[in-house]
Design a protein around this nucleic acid. Structure first.
Lengths: 120, 120
DNA sequence: CAGATACTTAAGCATTTGCTTAAGTATCGC
DNA sequence: GCGATACTTAAGCAAATGCTTAAGTATCTG
């Protein structure tokens, strides 16, 4: 397997598949066995196991085998890290817009404190 | 190109590549031409154009050609939608933990405030 | 107009991904 | 023990991905 230079690669790659997102969705409601994760998915059991391996490699899911059942749980911190990456870029963009707005306000001061519409 | 059943596929797939994330990062600081996006990336120009096409298909980036220069801008709403998907699952998980905690508090009042834990 | 700049398009190729089937192995319940 | 259950592992394959080079086409600049 190829090693990810950036861990975000693994996280966003794992999130990029609808079957894997459905597994995450299921696990957000509580731990589940591999069979439970597989039940709603229309694919072979080994295919589900492979998806699970991707989720586990990314750190999104942790599993632990008890007897013959593998129990899977969500690791919410990893989802947070992805959220933070997105938030950071989005807010950088937003701040830039705010600065631009302030600059325009300074350069060209507000003429009338009207609320409804501008005309002329 | 294959049509995505779920638009989140396109968004998270686009985010899964480090070159594309670096392009998003650059664009979060303001609009840029394709050449500007390509400059820090150690790959051929057509490769960058292909990455840009992925970003544009996902809706994360919008582009507009002015003269011979294609100007690229970030579409922050798409990043928000990805953020919301993650937040929703993470908070569903968190709420479940909170409910579980409340249940345990009701059933079995707190004995000792321990901080350590080990398992496996 | 001519040459430089900024993409654009097409073809090809190695690797990765997402499945499949066909085998295992390791508990569990009687 | 013995069959059912719950995975596990391996091999194979079609399609998608991430590049490449080699050619375009516009649009500026002098």
């Amino acid at each position: 397997m190829l090693k990810y230079l950036d861990h975000m690669d693994a996280v966003f790659s794992a999130l990029a598949d609808p079957s894997r997102r459905s597994m995450i969705d299921r696990l957000s409601r509580g731990p589940a066995s591999v069979s439970e994760l597989a039940a709603p998915l229309e694919m072979s059991f080994p295919a589900v196991v492979q998806h699970l391996a991707v989720l586990e490699a990314s750190g999104i899911v942790r599993t632990k085998k008890v007897g013959r059942v593998r129990s899977c749980t969500l690791e919410p911190g990893i989802l947070s890290s992805a959220e933070e990456w997105l938030e950071q870029r989005r807010t950088t963009w937003q701040k830039r817009l705010d600065r631009l707005g302030a600059f325009l306000d300074d350069t060209n001061p507000p003429p009338l404190p009207k609320k409804d519409q501008s005309n002329d």
